[in-house]
Design a protein around this nucleic acid. Structure first.
Lengths: 101, 101
DNA sequence: CAATCATTTGGTTATTATGCCAAAAAACAA
DNA sequence: TTGTTTTTTGGCATAATAACCAAATGATTG
């Protein structure tokens, strides 16, 4: 494996890791229907404000979401909606349909 | 969030976590062009046989790959090829194309 | 059966991730 | 300015991952 291939692999992995946590995946799914402020996400999850904030940072660093501060609130939005298409495939895995898609 | 929603989320997360490691993702990509025995995957990665074997177990438990023992060798194959479609989206994230797909 | 090859399992250690609390910032209101 | 609201940051304890080595298993060959 070349150095470049390793770099590409690491970059892909970073995105996947960002999505690979229930709280983060839930937030990404919420953002499918539009932006949300941090407080709305905290309400949905049963986690500390600081914890949610850190999860959002992980998603942001991976390039999955964008943040926009307006007044006292920070609104997060989905930068790359295609990540959710994938979930249909994942659902196929879950249902054990195999060979799908 | 209902108990059922949590269960679904955990199942999706399991698949994503399985893919979210460079060695495992690399192996999945290799399997795109057909089954491979463990030894072939060990050759490509610079990892111990036992480490590769454990990574394959993670992928198997997540439902992403299937194993088939034939003679002394165990062949792994991709159960759900659609996981690779997703990588096009991930590549869009990496390139910072945003808004893609 | 003994020896060998391919793979898995068990155990240990190092690194990374997660969650909470407390405190700092940033924007606004009084 | 002082206080209030919203979010982020720092620190710490605990849990989950990942890698290696050594040993065990399973299938085949001599």
């Amino acid at each position: 494996m070349t150095k470049h291939e390793k770099t590409v692999l690491a970059a892909k992995t970073k995105v996947l890791k960002a999505l690979a946590h229930p709280a983060r995946l839930w937030m990404v799914e919420q953002l499918e229907s539009g932006e949300r402020c941090v407080c709305e996400l905290v309400d949905g999850l049963e986690l500390d404000f600081s914890t949610v904030s850190k999860h959002l940072l992980v998603l942001k660093n991976a390039g999955v979401v964008a943040d926009d501060k307006r007044g006292k609130q920070v609104f997060y939005s989905l930068k790359v909606p295609c990540v959710l298409n994938f979930m249909h495939c994942v659902e196929a895995v879950i249902k054990g349909e195999g060979e799908g898609f």
